[in-house]
Simulated assay, not measured.
Amino acid sequence: MRRSGPVRALLAAAAAAAVSAGLVVAGGGTAQAAAPASRAPMPAHVVAPYYETYNGGSPAALAAQSHNTYLTLAFLQTPAAGSCTATWNGDPTTPVSKSVYGKDIAALQSRGGDAIPSFGGYAADSTGTDIADSCTDVQSIAKVYESLVTTYGVTRIDLDVEVDALSDTAGIDRRNKAVALVEEWAQRTHRTVQFSYTLPSTTSGLGATGLAVLQNAVANHARVDVVNIMTFDYYDGAAHEMATDTETAAAGLHAQLAALYPSVPSARLWGRIGVTEMPGIDDYGPAETFTTADAATVEHWAAAKGINTLSFWALQRDNGGCPGTTGAGVCSGVAQSDWFFSHTFEAFAHPAWHWDNGRSTGPAHKSAPHQVGRGRRM
């Protein structure tokens, strides 16, 4: 993602349900004191906007205001290239510790949600400070990933690989080897650990370098639970209808996953896909504007396809405080009510809910701004 600034044992029934849903998870065993190992895996449909940790504030507080129960916390990186220690935003004063975001993550979990710590991102991936690019010892990388699980009790880790990290073949190989080691560790210690890859996308699927990341994962026997594509910042000079482009990008990814995992049924492949939007005007400019109507269209499409994750970059942008502003970090650049995109995507995680004249029948809030989608516009 582009950004500014420095950047439980599972019960047998739960494990069986997860396997039948197409997720491979650890099951059984006894919880350990360091972090509960009995937390269930994430549900099949999750809304998890990114939260920019480098801008400060309380993730749990903003999640409560916006009615989000899951957040992706971005980012973790090393303080300097060559280091094998990951800290929040690469800041040595914000280590992976219960004293840093521990209360926020526990608050999300107490509400029935969770946090997804994310490694990498644009700043780290362009400076060699993503842990897998920075550290040359696979065991050390794996220990860093494991520390997120033992410290915070989280069940999913996101790996955001873009820009220079996409061409660092040694880093890609180390990262996937570390993922495989963590998955073996989770099996032994009866923990749930999922990994998602967040990758840039074209309007027709992953580019060659992004696909190579997944091909290397297959070669290293690293299970990738979710492939999350960034359906924005195409930078191709074309005019875009962003909802349509999300659908074609995800369809292309589905075809690529089918080639990588030929024995996996189509529906389960859709269940391994995530999409991340940028509300409003993205970094490229007005030609790439994800509108409020696009949000409704994508939510309906995502529910129909049964994808795994809907996300957007970032929660701090989900307001209309700067209409007409391009690529702003604290607002969408389009006219909207506060938390419009959060509230619209919320229905994806609660398929029994429906909207009636802008009012949600769901229990999370009495009313929410909502715009009826223009329907499928392709």
Rank of each mutant, 00 (worst) to 15 (best):
L214I: 01
L214S: 00
Q215F: 03
N216K: 14
V218I: 14
V218G: 05
A219T: 06
A219R: 06
A219E: 00
N220V: 10
N220T: 07
N220G: 07
H221M: 09
A222K: 01
A222M: 11
R223I: 12
V224C: 04
V224H: 10
V226E: 00
V226K: 01
V226F: 06
V226Q: 00
V227A: 02
N228C: 07
N228M: 04
I229T: 01
I229Q: 04
I229Y: 01
M230F: 12
M230G: 08
T231A: 15
T231I: 06
F232T: 08
D233I: 02
Y235T: 14
Y235Q: 13
G237T: 02
G237E: 11
G237R: 08
A238N: 15
A238F: 01
A239F: 04
A239Q: 12
A239I: 11
H240N: 03
H240D: 03
E241A: 07
M242Q: 03
M242D: 04
D245C: 12
T248K: 12
T248E: 05
A249T: 00
A249E: 10
A250Y: 08
A250L: 13
A250Q: 04
A251F: 08
G252F: 04
G252I: 04
G252A: 02
H254A: 15
H254D: 14
A255P: 10
Q256I: 09
L257M: 04
L257T: 03
A258P: 09
A259E: 14
P262D: 07
